[in-house]
């Protein structure tokens, strides 16, 4: 364990967020048992008032989770000097078995939180809270996710041993390596590029289809999730080497550094935003038929799908731009 302010902040935040979620979950159980929209009793009134508290609490909890995702990556980056063999965040995440799972869980918590908040905002616009049981049921599912993340992160930081020789991006993401990260880099660039554009075309078409007909929202969300995963693979396999102008350098974190013009932010921010909004479309669209929500579904569905499509377009344009403008020429090798 290293006594470092960023680590202390991350541990503090994950525990406070977990506490906030536990409070919310306690309320959710109470609500699932006693909620009765038709009743005008004191208890029902109290429950209705308390929903405001829970919404605010969770909005802050998930906002904090988002910042903590950033802090986690920055911190890994900055600690690279303290571990033998670590040259960037990859090496630090690799120091023990918990680094990568924590990162993936943080990403998962971000998306689930964003989706839940979208659903919550939609439900609050219906006068009779038609989805209230559904959304508080979902909230209960989020608790174990956040609890696991807190636990894994704690183990990761407690078991950080500065004298371990870790393998860094040079070897971890090199093509002849084993393990998940190695497999990702070993995906043939040709395959990654084709899948990137194919999934991009599918997701854009599905989004436009939803925008025009108000149908296929779930499909759009599903495509967006697939496109998100393929995009991450493509960033490791093709886009990063083009940004570094080095065919063997696959690190997904070094592109966030100033040395590469902060290119990573132009990729990750649109990609994450687009996927979060697309998942929002997926959870909003099925409720068109509920009469108290149909108006809200069509307005917020349109808004979400527009934002999501715009962000996807920005992501694909910037990814293509980086490849097009790179000084790396791989004709005859990759293509």
């Amino acid at each position: 364990m290293l006594l470092n302010p960023a680590i202390m902040a991350l541990i503090l935040v994950s525990f406070v967020v977990l506490l906030m979620l536990l409070v919310a979950a306690g309320f959710a159980i109470h609500l699932l048992r006693f909620w009765d929209m038709a009743s005008g009793s004191e208890r029902q009134l109290r429950l209705e008032r308390r929903t405001y508290l829970i919404s605010t609490l969770l909005a802050w909890a998930f906002a904090a989770e988002l910042v903590s995702l950033l802090l986690y990556v920055y911190n890994a980056e900055s600690m690279s000097g303290q571990f033998v063999g670590a040259m960037c965040a990859t090496g630090v995440l690799n120091v023990n078995a918990w680094g990568w799972p924590t990162l993936f869980l943080k990403v998962a918590v971000f998306f689930s939180g964003a989706t839940w908040l979208t659903l919550n905002a939609l439900d609050n616009r219906g006068y009779d809270y038609p989805l209230i049981r559904f959304k508080y049921g979902l909230l209960l599912l989020l608790v174990p996710l956040v609890a696991t993340e807190t636990w894994l992160q704690l183990r990761y930081f407690l078991e950080l041993q500065p004298d371990v020789i870790t393998s860094c991006c040079g070897s971890l993401f090199s093509a002849n390596d084993r393990g998940v990260a190695g497999e990702v880099a070993a995906v043939s660039p040709r395959w990654a590029m084709w899948s990137l554009y194919l999934s991009g075309a599918l997701v854009l078409l599905a989004g436009l289809f939803y925008h025009r007909t108000r149908r296929g929202g779930l499909l759009f969300g599903l495509f967006a999730m697939v496109a998100f995963l393929i995009a991450l693979v493509a960033i490791v396999s093709v886009i990063s080497p083009y940004i570094y102008a080095h065919p063997e350098h696959h690190c997904p974190f070094c592109i966030l550094k100033s040395g590469h013009g902060f290119a990573g932010y132009l990729l990750y921010i649109p990609l994450f935003a687009a996927t979060a909004w697309a998942l929002g479309v997926a959870v909003v669209s099925p409720w068109q038929r509920i009469s108290s929500l149909s108006e809200a579904v069509s307005t917020s569905g349109t808004r979400l799908v527009r934002r999501s499509l715009m962000m996807f377009v920005i992501f694909y344009l910037s990814a293509s731009g980086f490849v097009y403008n790179s000084t790396l020429v791989m004709q005859g090798v990759w293509w």
Binding site: P5, A6, A9, L10, L12, V13, A64, V67, S68, L70, L71, Y74, N75, E77, S78
Partner: peptide, 11 residues
């Protein structure tokens, strides 16, 4: 840097 500001924010 961003790390400092994010840490400070959390504290």
């Amino acid at each position: 840097d961003g790390l400092q500001i994010a840490t400070l924010f959390f504290f």
